[in-house]
């Protein structure tokens, strides 16, 4: 995993490693591009996406609505805020970071 990704995430800034050669996004985050194996460099990317699937979690310390969001070239599982949620709807990242237990978190909300 690219350390830049987590370092940045800890500051609440979402970046994705992008290949310095072929410009593809390296996802999951990696120091090397899985496509051409060149080095990657973290870059800020658009965090708007589509809600693929969502459900309610009742797991201790993981309560709430979560879902898969498809963004431009990568997918994330995160908390989904808001009401009247529907698969296929446009969402955007509202918050991200690293929790006290060391797990990354991503929050999304409906785009409009």
């Amino acid at each position: 995993m690219a350390s830049e990704f987590l370092t940045s995430l800890k500051k609440g800034v979402f970046v994705v490693p992008v290949c310095t050669s072929c410009r593809k996004k390296a996802w999951p985050p990696s120091a090397r591009c899985p496509s051409c194996l060149s080095r990657t460099r973290a870059a800020k990317v658009a965090t708007a996406g589509i809600l693929v699937e969502f459900a309610a979690s009742h797991v201790k310390n993981r309560e709430g609505t979560f879902g898969i969001v498809e963004m431009d070239g990568f997918r994330l599982v995160g908390s989904i805020e808001g009401t009247n949620l529907k698969e296929g709807m446009d969402v955007k990242m509202s918050k991200c970071g690293v929790g006290s237990d060391g797990a990354p978190y991503y929050h999304f909300q409906p785009a409009e």
């Binding site: 990704f5 985050p29 699937e53 969502f54 459900a55 993981r62 979560f66 994330l76 599982v77 995160g78």
Partner: peptide, 20 residues
């Protein structure tokens, strides 16, 4: 190891997505 799962990193979370 899987940062793509965010905080929802228990196996049951992906199982729920498959089921839904």
């Amino acid at each position: 190891w899987d940062v793509t799962r965010g905080a929802f990193n228990f196996p049951v979370h992906w199982a729920a997505m498959f089921a839904k």
